[in-house]
């Protein structure tokens, strides 16, 4: 009947709630006000311009523009290549993250540092570099075409290559920290319960990694859908074949077809919003599954 022993020194939950009410820290109104002002000026105002201008079109007009055959072909290429690139990045990104966290191998630190190259390298630079590399006379292109007869540059495959490049860091950088935090005890427990190595990976490790893996996939996909700079050099930009949706917008702009460009941009913005919501959900799921905050 000892009552006091049950009273553990836990940090009471209400301390968290306490934040909302009153704080001695100053500057809330100032910082929030400035944040909102900046967001409105830089983000909300321009985005609303797209939708408001797009609404000048009647629905049939809008529909005709955004479903024109050339535009439809660009959706197929953009979303198809983005999905494929994100999937390839998920597979190799997982391998790279696994190798970086779990193994020692020569050059590991350099690899770890260079993974972020696509974040830091301007897309136009990446675009011309990839083109030079995969062109008919390039380091890789000459073998691909000479030996296997595969053309990469100036074909939809080129689009895929560029989108793989810009998506590399996403999966690695979302999976890596989760993998680092993973307790070896889980796998020790699995092994002690008789699981084989692949079983303990499949049933114990992979479920923990799944949310992060999907988040990385979604981030890579979202980035790829909107990508412009690295793609246009390598794609060849042939209408109906290797023309991506952002390029359609540019083309329409160059023809002073502002309404047409705005309509397609509105479609892309909606896709961006949806992807963002999806990513937020996935990140919340990752946080829940691993106990990490993002």
């Amino acid at each position: 009947m000892s009552l006091s022993s049950a009273l553990e020194p836990v940090k009471p939950a209400y301390r968290k709630i306490a934040k909302r009410n009153y704080s001695v820290l100053p500057g809330f109104s100032l910082s929030l006000g400035y944040t909102l002002f900046y967001l409105c000026l830089i983000v909300i105002l321009p985005i609303s311009a797209v939708f408001i201008r797009a609404s000048e079109l009647s629905w049939p007009e809008f529909w005709e523009i955004v479903t024109a055959p050339r535009v439809m072909a660009s959706y197929k290429l953009t979303f198809g290549a983005s999905l494929a690139a994100a999937a390839i990045n998920a597979v190799f990104g997982l391998m790279l993250a696994w190798a970086l966290v779990r193994y020692t191998f020569p050059g590991k630190r350099v690899v770890d540092a260079l993974i972020d190259l696509p974040f830091a390298l301007p897309t136009a630079v990446a675009g011309i570099a990839l083109t030079a590399l995969y062109a008919q006379n390039g380091w890789i292109g000459q073998y691909l075409e000479g030996v296997f007869g595969i053309k990469v540059a100036y074909t939809p495959l080129g689009v895929l290559v560029a989108l793989i490049f810009i998506g590399v860091p996403f999966v690695v950088r979302t999976v890596q920290p989760v993998l680092e935090d993973l307790e070896t005890e889980l796998e020790e427990a699995a092994a002690s319960l008789g699981a084989r190595r692949w079983q303990s990976f499949y049933y114990v490790v992979l479920p923990v990694l799944t949310p992060a893996l999907l988040t990385g996939f979604a981030l890579a996909f979202a980035r790829a859908v909107g990508e412009y700079g690295s793609v246009i050099f390598i794609a060849g930009n042939m209408p109906m074949v290797s023309e991506i949706t952002p390029l359609i917008i540019i083309t329409k702009l160059e023809q002073f077809d502002y309404l047409g460009a705005t309509a397609v941009a509105a479609v892309m913005l909606v896709v961006s919003f949806l992807l963002l919501l999806l990513i937020n959900g996935l990140q919340a799921w990752t946080a829940k599954r691993t106990g990490r905050s993002r």
């Binding site: 009273l7 553990e8 020194p9 836990v10 940090k11 009471p12 939950a13 209400y14 301390r15 306490a18 009410n21 009153y22 001695v24």
Partner: peptide, 19 residues
């Protein structure tokens, strides 16, 4: 007092960290 009994809140109110 036990966790959640309000003792820390009272202390913070006395300090002026909480209102």
């Amino acid at each position: 007092g036990p966790s959640g009994c309000g003792k820390t809140t009272l202390l913070r109110i006395i300090a002026g960290l909480e209102q």
